[in-house]
């Protein structure tokens, strides 16, 4: 569906996108993950034809964005980082302008109503966009991207500035859209791609660091063994004991005392489960384990790991 080959984009001497290649298949939800300034927006702006690449090609359904811009742009609905809204229009006026601009030829009223229903903004359709909350503005932006029934929807940092409830609502909205559209979204929040995407492309400094299915990536996450344990005993001694256990890589303690209990986060490497050893050692000293639970490695850790691993390779 989308085929990107050796894409390079420079701004002056700065290389924003450095030789990126990937393909997106129909029906996928692909997450672009990377810190701010990694080149996510630039890549998206190139796919949508807003920017030209310095070199490399973007094919959408076999058509080059720069040779057949109109045909390609018709297939893409784009929500830039800042929704491109006209503040002094009402929601309806805005969507009807977008409808005309995209030169759609279906029933206007019906189509706009449908788009409004998808993002649940029918109740504010006669409100001035300027008066809407950030979350609603975002939805109007998405409705605008949906106008014209594009096959591909590209969303640049769509959850920035939304409240936690809005983010949850937004996720179910995207999942709904994924039934009909191919979706590319970018974010610097890892839990988001994890929750939404079936494929994750990690970008840093203009380069692809990883391009994997979400489950595959989660397996990489599993390599790291961490758990949190609450132990009733003197903080310093317990800490030293934990550290002394073979294959423990790191122990941290926030020092917050709850009765006579402290919370430690233990990180270990290797295949031996150290929990049994730990239990025996602590039992010998008479320091009971009050609670223990695994700490799921977040994608944040993974991200740091991927980037540093990439760094080591070079």
């Amino acid at each position: 569906m989308i085929e990107i080959t050796n894409l390079v984009r420079k701004f002056g001497n700065k290389v924003a996108v450095d030789n990126i290649s990937f393909t997106v298949k129909e029906g996928e939800i692909v997450g672009f993950l990377g810190p701010n300034g990694a080149g996510k927006s630039t890549t998206m702006n190139i796919i949508t034809g807003y920017l030209s690449p310095t070199s490399g090609t973007v094919l959408v359904d076999g058509l080059d964005v720069f040779e057949e811009p109109q045909a390609v742009k018709k297939q893409i609905g784009f929500l830039p980082e800042q929704p491109p809204l006209y503040m002094d229009m009402t929601v309806w006026e805005y969507l009807s302008f977008v409808f005309d601009l995209k030169g759609c030829d279906f029933n206007k009223k019906k189509h706009i109503t449908e788009a409004c229903e998808v993002v649940k903004i029918l109740d504010v359709k006669n409100h001035l966009i300027r008066t809407l909350s950030k979350g609603y503005k975002q939805r109007v932006g998405i409705a605008g991207a949906l106008i014209g029934n594009p096959k591909i929807i590209i969303l640049d940092e769509p959850t920035v500035g939304l409240s936690p409830e809005q983010v949850i609502e937004f996720r179910s909205l995207i999942r709904g859209l994924a039934k009909k559209h191919t979706i590319i979204l970018s974010t610097h929040i890892l839990s988001e791609v994890q929750a939404l995407c079936n494929r994750i492309i990690v970008i840093n400094e203009g380069k692809i660091v990883a391009d994997q299915d979400t489950p595959q990536l989660k397996r990489v996450v599993g390599e790291n063994n961490r758990f949190q344990v609450k132990i009733a005993g003197p903080q310093k001694e317990v800490y030293n004991l934990l550290r002394s256990i073979h294959s423990v890589r790191d122990v941290s303690c926030d020092g917050v005392r709850d009765g006579d209990t402290y919370t430690f986060i233990v990180e270990y490497s290797g295949s031996i489960d150290i929990r049994k050893i730990m239990f025996k050692e602590l039992a010998n000293k008479g320091w009971p384990i009050m609670a223990m639970e695994g700490v799921e490695t977040t994608l944040e850790d993974l991200f740091v790991k991927l980037i540093s691993r990439k760094g080591e390779e070079e």
Binding site: G49, P80, P84, V98, L101
Partner: peptide
Amino acid sequence: RTKTDQLLFTSPVS
């Protein structure tokens, strides 16, 4: 200034 040019230039119009 309002970034609405992104809408215009990514729409299927010349």
